[in-house]
Design a protein around this nucleic acid. Structure first.
Lengths: 153, 153
DNA sequence: TGAATTAAGGTCAATTAAGGTCAAAATATT
DNA sequence: AATATTTTGACCTTAATTGACCTTAATTCA
């Protein structure tokens, strides 16, 4: 791991975790200077390691007194997301209904592929072997517990 | 045993056993240079001697500052692990028993923290609200399904 | 005030530095 | 001799680094 980009990434993440806020502000020039690289390498690091997909938001301002602000987006920002999903589940849900919902969470990148598999496996009909009205109710309970767990924070 | 591949294999295994971690990082170019062979011979050694079947995991990165990381998988991380864990669970398991097992999977880094939370939430007693002998049986079924899902591959 | 200057940051393409694949040739084994 | 394993090299893909040129904002000064 002798490349500069990784070092810059680490440095910025340290700044972020040391910060009292959920963001950090730096100067591109100053940073480039500190790491002995050209300024555009900072942009390279920002786009390859601090993209929205990585959970970051980068804002900047040019000109005198310019800066680069890196904001760490708390995962699943919307506070009522868990409530929304839980009310979507209700107190009874079919296996296909549950599958579709888990799929949506995956598409929204709120859970990983492994997590989606994990959740699917826990609520399959051949596992929850009890008679039908109760089975869908139990599935709803388990699914809501898992969603609440994984979407919080 | 005068072929280069064997020497490279030995060299890498020595690096691994000398390492403080369960992995070692090398540069393909550098290694090829050290053994006076073409870089692709390193790949040959990796695929013939450090495959998953041999209990190793190989990751790599291209480009500047690229590397090859060889991870030695802890014994038993292979296919029969699922069987072992499942027989450990049996056909009935208490909540504390399940919690301990999930904790162990986490410690062994077979699952992530989030995944462990996910699994715990799915088998809690207040979720599985049915009378007692049946509840532990249901928990065993769910847990085995989840473990099988997440540990395969 | 308004133009010139200075001080930032942005874009993009070229270059460099890795690692990957695959199949042919060479060598060992059976 | 036939088969399996090892060695080699040509060609490919990905990631990092660099630099030339562009845009925007603040400051200075005529």
């Amino acid at each position: 791991m002798t490349n500069i980009s990784d070092l810059i990434e680490l440095y910025l993440k340290k700044l972020l975790s040391d910060s009292l806020h959920d963001y950090v502000e730096v100067q591109r020039r100053e940073l480039a200077n500190r790491f002995n690289c050209v300024p555009s390498q900072i942009n390279y690091v920002l786009t390859t390691r601090f993209s929205a997909g990585h959970g970051y938001l980068v804002e900047s301002r040019r000109g005198g007194g310019g800066f680069v602000r890196i904001v760490k987006l708390p995962l699943g920002q919307r506070a009522n997301l868990v409530l929304d999903v839980c009310s979507l589940i209700g107190d009874s849900i079919s296996q296909t209904g549950a599958a579709g919902l888990i799929r949506r969470l995956l598409d929204e990148e709120l859970i990983t592929l492994r997590e989606s598999h994990l959740m699917q496996s826990a609520i399959r009909g051949n596992i929850l072997r009890i008679s039908l009205p109760a089975r869908d109710q139990l599935r709803a309970l388990i699914l809501k517990a898992m969603v609440t767990e994984v979407l919080r924070n």
